[in-house]
Design a protein around this nucleic acid. Structure first.
Lengths: 392, 392
DNA sequence: AAGCTTTTGATTATTAGTATGCATAAACCG
DNA sequence: CGGTTTATGCATACTAATAATCAAAAGCTT
């Protein structure tokens, strides 16, 4: 039944894709296969147009090794990042380089039908501009702001908006891209995945914070996204006052709180970007509120750093764009609050990918689903000459 | 180099050992191999005396399937659980059934040489009483109350006691049991592993709390022990008073705090067991202190439950023996503090294995190291007829 | 240019795993 | 008690992976 095809081409692709081994020698070293078997698998992948040779590396004394990489343009990936109040879409190549982006102030409150309809239209438009068709779409990655049962791809409850409870994302894509592979995950997980893979050298254990109007947390632990028993990991609570009732951090320190304070004082603020703009203009009240929020968040993160002992804490979300006024209090609270053991070597940095972290993560998610080792092994084994024919 | 022997006997053993598949049909279903290959691998394992047939299961209409299990008595495992102030040793069979236990009020403050010397002597004595020799010892599992670099087996710093910084546990065992496989991990991890595997039906995601004189936390996430970047995961902080400095939970709510309070009031208390005894005798002050401690702990755990979204929170350590007076406030604080989403289906229970959780976990750790798939595959492949000859 | 090194390709014999079919074992059912 | 069902064993032909070897390619050094 399971049949994992241990010497299948999929595991070869995985090493190439992740950059762990890109030459024949490295692959042999990593896999422990015979040269002939590896040659056959590479041939399969080349035949299927999944990988290509990207020239030679520098010689190490003898004939220089040939380097392989994923062929980026034999199809495209769609990425959709649904935020609490702002959503983005992108088309990327097969190595998750963003080719085209669009966005709108649209969120879960609009209901699934409307959002997916918007995304579908933008996708169609972008495809056309890139000279691609719906058939070129090989996989779709979606980030949603709520828990997901990744096994089934159904959204769990509670979602931010009731209309989204139990939504099956596939239903909204099957008519347009019936053949494409679909992967759905929580927005914070998706963002954190992107930072773990693309930020820095690549982290095994990181905590990703999405600080926008809402606030949430994602984990990549031991190199894999951690979701918790019911997909609900990452709920933030606030430092409690004198053992009082727990409050979600969102209700005391988040973009929503800053916004409420500012609105109460007569400012016109709707999104996280509005707050960032005010901060950038040097508005004292906004800066003070950001510092306060950052400190609260940092205190909570200090506890989490002790608990999880990650390599890095990455601050993303719209508020991260405010830069040091927001980041410094976070960093200070973490370093003040956590023990030296946990903060030694700890990296606390803003998202490298910025606003596009979610899209990159969604695309990476799509990539992972498209290039799942077993899938690729079976595909090339049956002599396929293209990923597009992938009715696997 | 790596050569993972995908169709090796080790993976078969893993399924049998974990109970995921114990009959030929189940194994075939799980592995997707041909019947013949599986038969060969089972033969290898039988020849090496690693597994044995344990009779037939009930028929499902036709010939009843034969059930396989690990042969428990072809060697023994040593388990050592070093607690903050109390240590235990045990000899178990190969399925981690405890055959013999001993303990002493001895802890890290005594220094590694003394503790390992004590353990070695007790092990020798126990072995003799069981009619076994040092050569029967196939693997050793050790739990220590501090971070461990599991890759190298060296203790990281800071340990509770400076003498333990950088200790290489292997050095203390190689002379007596040079041939045995050794595995070392943090005590809370070891305890949590035991609860995940042996408590309940088997959990994928659990949080284990060791509440004794000290207090610490272990994680099993996605079925594997999570240790953090530097082996330091599980550090507990306390609910903060008005955003003040972070305090380790240990300094405000732990057996140590209860003890200090009691001692200040003229009680004679040294260990967690002493506290439990006082509580059992109905001492009001002790009960009140336990309730207070339980509430603080529970509030912290509520945050963690939201963060990690585990299936279960298991309370172990010496204070857990106090039962409901300690557990009820914990449970109440968790249910009051965490959101419904996280507490729905959440199990909050005392350790099923009680004081022996650490020993069982250490033995499981030893088991895992002894039966590591690759190791077993290589071993049986070379035609070994016994685990004892395992110079692999 | 000659010799060295590393990478890659190709050949052959060998070993390991699979698919298939047939036989047998051991329960159940009516 | 024969028929059915599931489990297991065995034989044969076949396919896949490996090991070992030779050869060629493509750089470097002297």
């Amino acid at each position: 039944m399971a049949q994992s095809l241990s010497t299948g081409s999929g595991v070869v692709l995985d090493l190439i894709r992740s950059g762990q081994a890109t030459t024949r020698s490295d692959l042999l070293e990593r896999l422990g296969w015979s040269r002939i078997t590896l040659a056959r698998r590479l041939e399969e992948l080349l035949n299927a147009s999944i990988i290509m040779s990207v020239g030679q590396l520098d010689s190490r004394g003898g004939r220089p090794p040939e380097k392989f990489a994923v062929k980026p343009d034999s199809g495209v990936l769609l990425a959709l990042d649904i935020g609490g109040s702002h959503s983005m879409v992108a088309i990327t190549d097969l190595v998750s380089t963003i080719l085209s982006v669009d966005q709108a102030d649209i969120g879960p409150s609009q209901g699934p039908a409307e959002i997916f309809e918007w995304a579908g239209q933008v996708f169609d438009h972008m495809l056309q501009r890139l000279g691609k068709t719906r058939d070129d779409v090989l996989a779709i990655g979606v980030g949603v702001p709520g828990p997901v049962d990744t096994a089934t791809g159904r959204l769990a409850s509670p979602q931010v908006d009731k209309q989204w409870d139990g939504v099956t994302v596939r239903d909204y894509f099957s008519s347009r891209y019936g053949h494409a592979v679909l992967a759905v995950d929580r927005d914070v997980n998706v963002m954190t995945l992107a930072e773990a893979r693309r930020g820095g050298v690549g982290y095994q254990d990181i905590v990703g914070v999405k600080a926008g109007i809402g606030i949430g947390l994602g984990f990549v632990l031991d190199g894999a996204v951690y979701r918790g028993a019911r997909g609900g990991a990452g709920d933030l609570s606030r430092p409690r006052i004198g053992g009082g009732r727990l409050q979600r951090l969102e209700t005391v320190a988040s973009g929503a709180v800053v916004r409420a304070e500012l609105v109460a004082r007569g400012y016109k603020v709707r999104t996280g970007a509005d707050i960032v703009e005010l901060a950038a203009s040097g508005d004292h009240r906004t800066l003070a509120l950001l510092e306060e929020t950052g400190t609260s968040l940092g205190q909570t993160l200090a506890d989490i750093v002790g608990l999880i002992n990650p390599e890095a804490v990455i601050i993303g979300g719209s508020l991260a764009a405010a830069g040091e006024p927001f980041l410094t209090p976070i960093r200070e609270a973490i370093y003040a609050g956590a023990r030296e053991f946990a903060t030694q070597d700890l990296v606390v940095e803003p998202s490298r990918l910025g606003a596009e972290a979610g899209l990159t993560g969604a695309s990476l998610l799509a990539q992972d689903a498209l290039f799942a080792p077993d899938r690729i092994s079976r595909l090339t084994h049956s002599g396929a000459t293209s990923l597009a024919l992938a009715s696997v």
